[in-house]
């Protein structure tokens, strides 16, 4: 029952749009896939879009926080986009802050931010 989240490449960036609710296995699989893809393509930036996701619990937040730190270690900056208000509120109430993460309202603005950060 494992579903893989597609990772798209656009110039030196990777684009991921998460379209369905993440279960633990999919989240862990995604972590692995993304790191391999960064290695394979030498991508310098990653945008992960959460517009369709209506909840994130502490496990998924942890996997996400980890993958962001890991990507950083591999030299790729990560921007997360489209976090819904309800998701932001529950994350804050859970006490999860995702402190070092760059954020943007949507995929387009996320890409713009990434381009600025990468100095293109």
């Amino acid at each position: 029952m494992n579903m893989r989240i597609p990772i798209l490449k656009l110039h030196d960036c990777l684009l991921i749009s998460i379209q369905w609710e993440l279960d633990d296995q999919t989240a862990l699989q995604f972590q692995e896939d993304l790191l391999h893809k960064i290695h394979e393509t030498s991508a310098r930036g990653v945008v992960i879009d959460f517009t369709s996701i209506d909840f994130i619990d502490s496990f998924i937040a942890k996997v996400l926080g980890d993958v962001i730190s890991m990507s950083k270690l591999m030299g790729a900056k990560v921007v997360i986009t489209g976090i819904q208000p309800a998701v932001a509120i529950t994350l804050i109430e859970l006490g999860i802050r995702l402190e070092e993460v760059m954020t943007a309202l949507d995929l387009e603005k996320g890409l713009e931010k990434l381009q600025r950060e990468l100095g293109d």
């Binding site: 209506d54 909840f55 619990d57 309800a86 509120i89 529950t90 859970l94």
Partner: peptide, 27 residues
């Protein structure tokens, strides 16, 4: 949990709170 919350008329934020709480407890 999410279905019951929706059925009862909880707003999107409370739906997310309830779903997340259940996820934490179940985990």
């Amino acid at each position: 949990g999410r279905n019951v919350a929706k059925e009862l008329g909880f707003g999107t934020v409370d739906q997310a709170r309830i779903t997340t709480a259940i996820s934490e407890l179940a985990r």
